[in-house]
Amino acid sequence: MGGYSMAGPNATLTITRLTFLEAARRRIALAAFVLGLAFLLLFGIAFYFVTTETGLPTGDDPAGTLLRGQVYNFLCLMGLYAINFLTIAMAALVAADTLAGEISTGTVQALVTKPVRRAQIVLGKWLGFAVLLAVYLALMAGGLMLIVYALAQYTLPNLLPGVLLIYLETLVIMTLTLAASSTFSTLATGGVVFGLWGLAFIGGFVEQVGAVLNNPTVVNVGIISSLILPTEAVFRRAAFIMTSPVAQALGLMNGPVFVASVPSALMVVYAALYLLAVLGLAVRQFNRRDL
């Protein structure tokens, strides 16, 4: 009889590979990329007509350059907002069924009775989704900026830190979905995540209204809702740092997200800690669960 061996850290990577394979075989990745490509195409066409047929000043004078920069900045942030939404949707969709589905069908039984830790299954899946989302976001944001650069030679300020913040936001959503999926059914997971996301969205809106009305109590209500799920706050921070310096200095709102009250850098730290805590929760829930 052969010697027995224990699955080492490789078990985590085995699950990660399985996650990629699943995304590819079940055409989830394909659907997301086709949708993303369609969006980029649409954006490219719209951007082309905005730059050529809306009578933007074309001269090299400072006023013209400034105005063009403002318009491009606005359009890019709008595009990134849509990409942000697509990526979040993908994060929630791929992660919602992964544990809940495998638990309900019993698929997970043959996995966890192997000499692996349950945490390795959760972390393996998390890693797989994290890489998948990174590739998706990089392709989408990269494609968007390439289109803009090709048509107008314009680049967003702080592009890399801004996109990294958006990535952090999608990781938070994906991790939250994974944690819910380790506890609830697929459908309930969708409900929980969508509900919390909606709360954060409305909360962010409330915070902005409070800032405009100069009412600190209303702003605080918004901030508290951002603590429950810091995704909107992180996106607004990303949008703020990528807003053109002129608009920033003038306190102008830019892009589709109304940034009157800018979430602090502390909110980013909070989001990162939030992510780790929720990942820990996902592992804990899956460890305790009867399968």
Binding site: Y4, S5, L18, T105, G106, T107, Q109, A110, T113, K114
Partner: peptide
């Protein structure tokens, strides 16, 4: 578990 094999009932695999 390294020395155990298991065929679950009503299993569904990937």
């Amino acid at each position: 578990r390294a020395k155990i094999g298991f065929l679950p009932e009503h299993f569904r695999f990937h």
